[in-house]
Computed example of a mutant assay.
Amino acid sequence: MRMISIKLLEPLRFNDVADVVNESLEEGFNFLRRLVNDYQNGQNTFRMLGEALFGVFTMENELIAIGGLNIDPFANNPKVGRLRRFYVSKSYRRMGLGKLLVNEIIEHATLHFTELVLHTDTSEADVFYRAIGFEKASRYPNSTHFMKLE
Rank of each mutant, 00 (worst) to 15 (best):
R47Q: 15
N30V: 07
E10P: 00
Y87N: 09
V56Y: 11
R82I: 01
R82E: 06
E135P: 03
K136D: 11
S123C: 10
L116R: 06
A125C: 04
I66M: 13
A109M: 01
G42H: 00
R94H: 14
R130V: 13
L12A: 04
F146Y: 12
L25H: 03
E124C: 07
V17Q: 01
R84F: 08
V102L: 09
R93Y: 04
E104S: 14
I64K: 04
F113I: 00
F86L: 06
P141Q: 02
D38E: 15
V102M: 09
G68K: 01
A137Q: 14
Y129W: 10
F128A: 05
R2Q: 14
Q40C: 08
D19Q: 10
L101F: 07
T114L: 12
K79L: 13
E124G: 06
V80E: 09
L111D: 15
A52T: 08
E27T: 01
I4M: 09
G55H: 01
F57L: 12
R33E: 15
T144H: 03
K148E: 09
R85H: 10
L32Q: 00
E124Q: 12
E104T: 13
L35P: 00
N41K: 02
L12W: 09
T144M: 08
T110C: 13
N15H: 10
F134M: 05
L12H: 06
Y92N: 11
F54S: 02
